[in-house]
Structures are given as C-alpha cells and as structure tokens.
Write a protein that binds this DNA or RNA. Structure first.
Lengths: 213, 213
DNA sequence: ACTTGTCAAGCAAGCAATTGCTTGGTAAAT
DNA sequence: ATTTACCAAGCAATTGCTTGCTTGACAAGT
C-alpha cells in the first residue's frame, strides 16, 4: 500500500529532465530517512543481518519508533525493494521516450541502468537485486511482476537492435546474459577506480554489438 | 584451518577425468553432510536467515551437535565458501591443462564454470558468490585471494582470445562483465527450462566473440 | 486571550521468542 | 581405556515487536 504511493506522482516534465532518478515523494520526512538508512544497511549487512535497532540508530530513533512508520521490518524491505525497481523502470521509460535510433537508445538504456545501480540510488537497486528473494511469496510476486515489465521494455530495445543488424541474438537468454553483466557490476564497481558507470556502459555495448563500419 | 584440508588431496588423474567437480575429501562423513545442508540452506534463506537448528535438523542432529565439527557458525560459512571457490579453481585449471586452441578453450571454460554453478555443485558456488561478503575481514581476504587467482587464470584465456582476433577487448572491465553475465545466470537459470548450462555457455560465447568466417 | 481538543511523531520499558553456543554426560567403536 | 560422535538441557544475549505514555504543533471554540 504505502509503497505504491510513489506511483501516483507526476513525472517531472519528462522531456528535458536530467537522466537521474526522479525522486519519490519521500524526501524530507523521517519515513524517507528510514528507508534510506535501511537501504544502506541492507546492502552492507543483508536484510537478516540488519536489526531494527541498527536502522533506528542510523536515523537517531529508539528501537520501537520505526514501527510507527512501518508495521513490520518486512514492510521496510518491501518498500526499499519496490522503490528500487520503480525508479529503474521510470528511468528506462524516460530513455525510451526520447525516441533515439536503436544503437543510441541501447547505450543510453545501459548507461542509465548503470548510473542508478552504481550511483547514489545504489542501495535501493542493490537491495532489490540481491535481497528481494527474502520477501514472502505475495510480496515477491509483486516485485517479480515489476521486474518482468522492465525486461519486457528492455527486450523491445534488443529487438530493434537486432532488426538494425547490430545484434545477432535477441533471445531471452541473451537478454538475461546482458542484464546479468550489468547487474553484476554492482559487485565489483569501485567508485574510486578508473572507470565511471558511463565508461563501463560503453565497454559493454562494444562487447556485444557488431559495429557496422 | 579445517577448511584447508581440502587442498592437500591429490587431484584425481587429471588427464582423462570427467569435467565435473572433483570431490573434496568430504563425502561419506557427517561433516560433509553438514556443509552440504548448510550450502543448500544458505542459498535458500541466506546465511543470517539460516539457524544452526535449521542445519542440524536437515542432517538429523540436535542443535548443539554441529559444534563438534565446527567451532562456530561462521566457520561453516567459511568452509562452504572456500569449498565453492576451490572446486571452481580446480575445474578451471583442468580445462586449461587440456591445451586447446583459444576459442575452444574459452568456450570450455565458460561451460565448465556454468556447469558447476548451475549443476549439482550449485549451492557452494552460489554461497561463495552471494554470501561471502558476510565473512569477517580476515576470512574474506582469503576468499578474495582465491577469486583473484581465478580471475587471473581466466584473464590469460581472454588474452589468448584477443591475440587470435576473436575478442576486441580483454581489459579488466571486459573480464568482469563477461564473468558477471556468467555468475548472474545462477539468478535466473531454470533447470526445468529449455536451455541447459552448455547451451547457455555457447550463447554467451557467440555474444561476445567475433567469429572469423 | 485563553482554554481545549486533536493528532503526528516519538520515547521508555519491556515481553516472548529465538539466537549462537556451552556444558556435562554417554553409548558405541577402536 | 580412550576416542569419536553425539545428545539433553539450558544460558545469556539478541531479536522483532507491543504497550502506554509524553511532547510539540496546530486549530477551534469561547
């Protein structure tokens, strides 16, 4: 319920908006503080390795207080997770809406995905990728539907790539492999290192695409 | 300590051995039962989501008994993790030892990696990939060294691929991306589905390699 | 101006269950 | 008679969560 309040916000003037995470109505308030702290902690120590007291400490509360905002620890995980996938989906759709040619569109999609995964939104995306299996079946089904929607949209991009001769294989397995290479980057990316998300995205595109000149 | 007893076994007649996991001296005994059960449970519910009682139940023991074989729950995780990476490293080195041409060697490496990750050894490899960050720094350093060794060997394969003109980019980032696509497959692979690990490996090779005819 | 009522947001305290782990014993095998 | 492999029982700490209460902000009534 509460987690879905993010959907009914208006996308901010889609056309010339910056490519970074449109924020969900969850900025200035303490509820937002909690899910941000929880996101960070869940990524660092895992869901089950993080206690309510850890989260409360991180936002300067006592251990009972988060339950004023969330009815259970599980609901915090669910909120963090859906926040992650919703922002990613919105980002993707904003890129698609630009109507670029297949090749540019693909690189833009990959770069946007990586920017969110490796940038400031990092924690939410990570939790959704690596901790969502700990949700109970009903919640997981919701998250799974949203991921499926993401892949569907991404799949259309690959189809166009194949039609334009840039990609030989746009099958489901190929799609999973490409998305896997992207998602796994969260495991090894080093923000102090040489490559930024943009550069990594370019390298991935070069790796799987057949340039035509 | 105890975890390292696996290293001093002799590799079984390396040449014509089957391409599947050489087993570690841990088959018939209860200690092996524990790490196998722990591996399965850690993958299903995560390390912190699995209790000693879960593990004990799974092998028909009471909750105190695993501590006869391991001095702590942490040591069980460490053992499972090192088991995972050690077998993968041994597998990889056996493939290299065949001395195949670059292209065949690469596909063989990928297929072997996937066979272990998606096949019967699944749990160990998964735990090492997804739960090893929960080890404490000293243990994690050991696992990290072993992973680095794996990547090193894999890197040599990529270099040969590049030299033979099958691969444009053999940089560290490209290596991470390729290994990421492989490792992520554990997340979506469906053993009842259409593709087997071998087929997926072939598709990955086709995706990143430039065939010469 | 002053009381009164309401409500959001949190605290203090603690409860029942679960956790990793210990201890002392014991039956069988060697 | 020693060792191996385990059990029965339980302990101290931690866990998610609940309860009753306080506080500050704001509004309405008089």
């Amino acid at each position: 319920m509460a987690a879905l309040t993010m959907t009914d916000m208006t996308v901010p003037s889609a056309a010339d908006a910056p490519p970074v995470a449109p924020t969900s109505g969850e900025e200035g308030n303490r509820r937002g503080d909690i899910i941000r702290a929880a996101g960070r902690l869940f990524r660092q120590k895992g869901y089950n390795g993080t206690t309510i007291r850890d989260i409360a400490d991180a936002v300067g509360m006592r251990s009972g207080s988060p339950f004023y905002h969330f009815k259970s620890k599980h609901e915090i995980l669910f909120t963090v997770t859906t926040e992650g996938i919703e922002v990613m989906l919105r980002n993707l759709e904003m890129v698609i809406a630009k109507g670029q040619p297949a090749r540019e569109c693909f690189e833009d999609c990959v770069a946007t995905h990586m920017n969110y995964l490796l940038g400031p939104g990092r924690d939410f995306a990570w939790v959704m990728l690596y901790e969502s299996r700990l949700l109970d079946p009903a919640e997981r089904a919701i998250v799974h539907r949203m991921s499926a929607r993401y892949e569907e949209v991404f799949s259309a991009v690959l189809d166009r790539l194949q039609a334009s001769g840039h990609l030989h294989d746009a099958s489901a397995v190929a799609r999973k492999l490409i998305l896997g290479a992207i998602n796994w980057s969260a495991q090894w990316y080093d923000e102090t290192g040489a490559s930024d998300p943009q550069a990594i995205a370019r390298q991935l595109c070069a790796l799987v695409l057949h340039e035509k000149n």
